[in-house]
Amino acid sequence: MTARPSAGLVLDDIDARPGSTTSLLRTLIGLYLRPLGGRITPAALVRLAGDLGIPAARARTAITRLKQRGLLVAAPDGDYVLNPAALPMLERGDRRIFAVRTMTEADEWMLVSATVPETRRDLRHQLRRRLQFVGAGAVSAGLWILPGHLAEEVEQLLAELDARAFTTLFRTTDPKPADPLPAAAARWWDLAALRAEHERFQASLGDLDETQPFDAYVRLIDSWRVLPYIDPGLPRSLLPDDWPGERSVQEFARMSSELAPRALAHARGAVR
């Protein structure tokens, strides 16, 4: 088995573009390799890609990219297996994707204060991107706020980036900005961009063919999986009255429960 790649190669899908061949294959692998025993033959993986309408040549190209990104490694017998270094990322994704959590008024907030030396601009950039990706809001340069229930995830993120020495973490239940908290939240998070992502997801549901459960389910997850990261699940009192997040969660839960068992049965049958 190949050596573990550097941490940056197996981090979350910050650059994921839902619907692309590489994104669909990554979603497929994240969903099914673990329940299928952690390995799959190249032929079976290409066959499952074909069930998503992906031509074999394009699938093989995407699989090569995923090997380069550290998600898959080639076993001595030629099978593809999950890179152990990618498992924390996949497990973190499971929690975000399938167990969406919304803050209440009584929940704690976490503040992340980061002081990264000028000589480590690369780390500063990575830390900013990763914190944004896990749903943190930018209070000011070097100060971030996010739901307290993400504390473990933040600790893991800082460890993966080797950035813990440059950060201080705080907990509070009562942040007091100069203006009302809803107005401050609208500055800390780009609510317009988050709204657009919810609307994109909801529009994508109309393209799913539920008579083809495997294709529909993989595309459902692929369209959804980044949204629970970038949307922190703010308390309802901090959001506009017409906020679309609740509808997105409800629609995802409904379609996932209907499609998931049939899609897994299809995947199991395809690799026998």
Rank of each mutant, 00 (worst) to 15 (best):
R95M: 06
E108W: 10
A59F: 05
D107A: 08
I63W: 06
M110P: 01
I63C: 04
T119G: 13
I63R: 01
R101E: 15
Q68L: 12
A75L: 15
L82V: 11
T61E: 15
L111Y: 09
R60G: 04
P55I: 05
W109A: 11
V116K: 03
A74Y: 00
D79C: 07
N83L: 09
D77P: 04
M103A: 11
D77I: 04
P76C: 03
D79I: 00
A59N: 02
M103C: 12
R65Q: 13
A75E: 14
P117G: 05
D122W: 06
R65T: 13
A56Q: 11
L82S: 10
D79W: 01
I97D: 07
Q68A: 11
Q68W: 08
G70E: 09
L72Q: 09
L72K: 02
V100E: 12
R65M: 03
F98Y: 15
A56Y: 02
R92M: 13
A99R: 13
Y80T: 00
G93I: 02
D79N: 13
V116M: 02
F98C: 09
A106L: 13
T119Q: 13
F98V: 07
L90Y: 06
L90D: 07
E105G: 11
A99Y: 08
I54G: 03
I54E: 01
L87R: 15
A99G: 02
A57C: 00
A57D: 14
E105T: 15
A56C: 01
P55G: 05
E108G: 12
V100Q: 13
A57G: 08
P84Q: 06
I54Q: 07
F98T: 07
L87Y: 05
M110K: 00
P76F: 06
V81K: 02
T119M: 02
G53Y: 01
S113K: 04
V112Y: 01
V73M: 10
T64M: 07
R101H: 14
E108M: 08
P84S: 12
P117K: 03
A85T: 03
T104Q: 15
T115E: 14
A86H: 14
R60M: 07
A62N: 03
A86S: 15
W109D: 05
R121D: 06
R95C: 03
L111P: 01
R101M: 08
A114V: 05
L72P: 01
V73C: 03
P76K: 04
P84I: 05
T102K: 10
R69F: 07
G70R: 04
R60P: 03
G53V: 03
R58M: 03
A74I: 13
M110Q: 15
